[in-house]
């Protein structure tokens, strides 16, 4: 009986640990996906503006730097 209690206790704590790992992983994945999505949105916005204006960068200093495809 003690054995089965121990087994029960052991498997209960193992499943709790797995759930915690899964939960933390899910949070991490969600956070990373959001960061990547934000980065992608930013790049798309840069490209949108580039296509609209025809060039990507111009420097505010006296030497003008333009990057063109």
């Amino acid at each position: 009986m003690n054995e089965s209690k121990d087994r029960g206790r052991g498997s209960g704590s193992a499943s709790e640990s797995l759930s915690e790992v899964e939960y933390n992983l899910a949070l991490s994945v969600e956070r990373r996906l959001r960061q990547h999505q934000q980065a992608l949105d930013l790049v798309l916005e840069i490209e949108r503006q580039r296509l609209k204006s025809g060039h990507r960068f111009k420097s505010t200093s006296s030497s003008i730097t333009q990057i063109e495809d």
Partner: peptide, 19 residues
């Protein structure tokens, strides 16, 4: 930093970005 920054058009505004 502003003096050497580059200007990028974003969201219909001019955005200064560190060089």
């Amino acid at each position: 930093i502003k003096k050497k920054s580059v200007s990028v058009e974003l969201y219909e505004h001019s955005c200064r970005v560190m060089s």
